[in-house]
Write a protein that binds this DNA or RNA. Structure first.
Lengths: 220, 220
DNA sequence: GATCGTCTCCCCCGTGCGGGGGAGGCTCGT
DNA sequence: ACGAGCCTCCCCCGCACGGGGGAGACGATC
C-alpha cells in the first residue's frame, strides 16, 4: 500500500507543486489538502494519512499549533513533516519541539522532497541531520568549521550549549559534564534539553548523530 | 599534582619502556610496578595510583581477573588502562567488560601512550574509539568499509549485532529497532547490550561515537 | 549425540534521561 | 529603568535504558 499524504499550506501554488512532485511517485498518494491549520484535524481524522506535510506559517492556526493539536487529539497520529520557506526559520524548532517528525525546505529538489516523505513515513526522525548534511555540503570542501558555525547559527546554540554538545558528543554523561564544567547536574540537564530542542533531536544519541553529520565534531 | 601510574606487566622490558615514556612527562609519575596480577591489589591499596596500566596476559592472575578484583575490593579504585600486544586480542573485551577504562596497544607511539594515560586519568572512557580510529587509519584512504569490517572482526560483532548497531547509529530507539526488525524489544535490548559490551561502550551514545570514529558508519 | 554459537524472549531492578514547569542573578542594549 | 537573553539551579514525573540473571530453539560443527 502506498504512503498517503495530506498537504497543508495556505498557498495553492505550493500545494500544487508538492502534489505534482509526490504524485509522480507510484508509492506515494496525496489524499487531501488544507489551506490552514484549523482544517487539519477533521481532515486527519477522516483521511487518516500516513504523513502530513505542514507549512509553518499559516493564517488562523499556524503549523506549530496545528502540530500540537493533531498529536494531542488524534490517536495513532500521522507523521508530521514541517515545511518551511527558508532555513533560518526559528518557528521550525518550535514545531519540532511540538512533536513534528522532520522538516523540509520548500526549495529542496523534488528527489529530496520525495525522500523526506518516505523517510518520515518509515518512522525516521532523522530529517534534520540530513538537512544539516546538505547544508554542510554547501560550504564545500573545507566544510568542517564553517559547517559547524553554520550549525550554530542555524540552530542558534549558545556558547554554553555548544560546549555541552561537544561533551555529549564525546560520550560524557550529564554528571560527568557537570563535573567538567563545574556546575550542577540540573544545569547540564537544562543545557542538554535546550540543545535537543534546537537540534530537533529526541535524545542525546540523535544529537551526537547530528553533531557528526553536520561536521560540528569531526571524526578521525 | 601529577598523574600517578602503577605499571603491571610480566615483562620487565615492557615495564621499563612504559616507565621511560611516561616519566619523560612532567605531569606523570610512575609510582610502582608489579609483575603479575596477584601483586596488584596490595600495591593499589598502598600507592593509590590514579591509573593502573595493566597487561592482559599474565601469569598467576591475568589482567581481566586483576581488573575485576581491584574494582571489587578497592573503594575509589584507580582508572584501569588495559595494555595488549596486538589488536586481535579478545581478552581485551573481557577486560573492558570487567570494568577497565580503556585499552592501549603496546606498539602505540609514545605520544599516544602518554595521551591515553592522561585521558583515562581525566575520567574519559573513550580510549576505545580513539584506538579504533588509528586502526581505521591503518587501512588508508579507502578506510570506510575495510575499517568497518575490521571493527566487526575486532569486536567480533555478529551480523545481527552489527545490524542493530547500524540502526542505533541512525538514532532509532530500541522499540523502533524492534519494529524494524520485527522482533521483541527484549531481543533488541539483548543485542544492544552485547554491542555495548563488545565495544566497551557505556551506553548507546558512546556506541554511536565509536561507530562514527571507526568508519563503521560514514558521515555525510 | 553432544556441544557451541546465535537469535530469540523473559524476569527484576535501579537510575540516568528527558519533558514540564518555575525562578533568581547577570549582562547588555535601549 | 526596563526588558531580553543567558546561565544557573530547583521541583516533579514517567519512561527508556542498561545490568543481571535465565531459558528455549535452531543450525553448524565435531
Amino acid at each position: 500500500m502506498p504512503v498517503t499524504v495530506l498537504l497543508v499550506d495556505d498557498e495553492p501554488l505550493v500545494r500544487a507543486g508538492l502534489r505534482a512532485v509526490l504524485e509522480a511517485q507510484p508509492d506515494i498518494e496525496v489524499v487531501g489538502e488544507a489551506a490552514d491549520g484549523a482544517a487539519v484535524i477533521p481532515l486527519v481524522r477522516q483521511l487518516r494519512p500516513d504523513v502530513v506535510a505542514m507549512d509553518v506559517r499559516m493564517p488562523l492556526l499556524d503549523g506549530i499549533e496545528a502540530t500540537r493539536a493533531v498529536l494531542r487529539t488524534v490517536d495513532e497520529p500521522p507523521k508530521i513533516l514541517v515545511v518551511t520557506t527558508f532555513e533560518n526559520d526559528e518557528y521550525v524548532y518550535e514545531a519540532l519541539r511540538a512533536g513534528a517528525d522532520g522538516f523540509l525546505l520548500k526549495r529542496a529538489r523534488p528527489a529530496e522532497i520525495v525522500h523526506a516523505v518516505r523517510l518520515v513515513a518509515e518512522g525516521e526522525s532523522l530529517l534534520f541531520p540530513a538537512s544539516v548534511r546538505q547544508l554542510a555540503a554547501q560550504y564545500g570542501e573545507d566544510g568542517g568549521n564553517r559547517a559547524a558555525r553554520a550549525l550554530l547559527e542555524r540552530a542558534r546554540l549558545t556558547e554554553r550549549e555548544a560546549e555541552v554538545l561537544r561533551l555529549v558528543a564525546r560520550g560524557l554523561s550529564n554528571a560527568e559534564i557537570a563535573a567538567r564544567l563545574v556546575v550542577g547536574t540540573e544545569t547540564v540537564k537544562s543545557h542538554v534539553s535546550a540543545v535537543l530542542a534546537k537540534l530537533g533531536a529526541r535524545d542525546r544519541t540523535q544529537a551526537v548523530i547530528t553533531a557528526y553529520e553536520s561536521g560540528f565534531v569531526a571524526p578521525g
